[in-house]
Design a binder for these strands. Structure first.
Lengths: 222, 222
DNA sequence: CGTCATTGGAAACAGATGTTTGAATGTCAT
DNA sequence: ATGACATTCAAACATCTGTTTCCAATGACG
């Protein structure tokens, strides 16, 4: 009877799916525990609180991701031996790292949807937790992007990176809904890898877009 | 004592702010009514239910928006008299219509944050409501975009439009958090108009990006 | 001035929520 | 087998949720 995974794993497996489908506030502990076939108290026993459960769900994705991404960046830096890494390769590496992690065990859809929720849901504790726990990888990545795009003003690069973050998270986290529309309208089934293929030239073009016209004030000053 | 706006308006004004700050599920009717200084029962009396209140909050933004946007598109079509409207002008018109509406009475920040929530929150009823009520403007807009970008395959244009929708909604709905970081790191205060200025070349470049490499299967077929 | 429909408000409702409790059960090393 | 420990379980807890009820206040109209 111990053929199925242990309680902690069953809770996490169920919770991540329900969270991804309905959000955090809209998913009760009773939803989770009944579907996972564990006792209600098990969540508070193993995780302490619902907040901690949410963070644990994220950690199970983000911990392996950061390890892999750091390793991939190490290898990339070694390959270019002190030189500048082209933007395309940086983006490619990030995409590959994101795609690899959930492929092992979980679904990319869930992963991206969770990331989307982390940004959009109130849940201040989550943003803080992710920032403190995983901010360093992002910092390392943005520094490499800075070297790859020396002609971009810092502020402009900052905003464009976030523009593209929005593109990716929004698209992949709302994928199910969009996929339904796309399939109905164009009869074309869209896989995640297909979407990444479509995203690549768009993101590159966006990062390399011409600078915006300066405001009148800036024109006068510059 | 009737100097302040009536009950319905006070409820809507308060609700939209709280919804934008904390999401729908995380905002209780008691939060709203106590802050708006109206009786708890007033919400159910005037709106019927919390769901309807949420929809009413959206309607107060989207109704004027669709009117203005349709009018702006009418004018644009008349100006080009049957010819094709350039993509830049279409995007420009959309941006102007979005910016105009909340300027009158409410904050753009709230408006965009609500749009972001409409996509990310579960709230199936909301997506359905918005789609049914306001889908036609979006359809008209996308048809004009189709004429402006005849070289793009339909599916590609569909996805790129949603990529850009993600860029804009994600950025403007998480604006407060991003603005804090940007100001801390670059000392530069960022207004919404400033952000729109930065978005313009990025969105245009993204829409005009080269087509993605075909998949091996497509290469073989095509 | 009196009538009556409409709007406002305090209280109560039924149900759901996260969390805690204390006993029962299982699992090992001794 | 016994004792120590970790886990599971059913039940209760207090609190919060959206909604409804019922009565008082209000205001328009004959």
């Amino acid at each position: 009877m111990a053929q199925q995974p242990d309680t902690v794993t069953r809770i996490l497996d169920t919770a991540e799916v329900l969270f991804a489908e309905r959000g955090f506030a809209e998913t009760s502990l009773r939803n989770i525990t009944s579907k996972a076939k564990v006792n209600l108290a098990a969540v508070n026993y193993h995780f302490g609180s619902k907040k901690s459960l949410i963070q644990a769900v994220f950690a199970r994705y983000l911990d392996p991701f950061t390890v892999r991404f750091h390793a991939a960046l190490d290898e990339l830096e070694a390959r270019h031996a002190g030189g500048v890494i082209p933007l395309e390769e940086l983006l490619e590496t990030m995409a590959r790292s994101v795609l690899e992690v959930p492929a092992e065990r979980h679904s990319l859809k869930v992963f991206m949807r969770l990331l989307g929720l982390a940004y959009s849901q109130a849940q201040g504790h989550l943003r803080r937790y992710i920032q403190e726990e995983y901010g360093s990888v992002f910092t390392r990545f943005t520094e490499l992007v800075r070297q790859a795009t020396p002609e971009l003003p810092d502020a402009e690069r900052f905003w464009r990176l976030h523009f593209m973050l929005g593109t990716v998270i929004f698209t992949l986290s709302g994928l199910d809904a969009l996929r339904d529309i796309a399939e109905k309208d164009y009869g074309e089934h869209v896989s995640v890898r297909d979407l990444v293929r479509r995203l690549r030239p768009v993101v590159v073009a966006a990062m390399n877009a011409p600078l915006p016209e300066p405001t009148p004030a800036q024109r006068e000053a510059g």
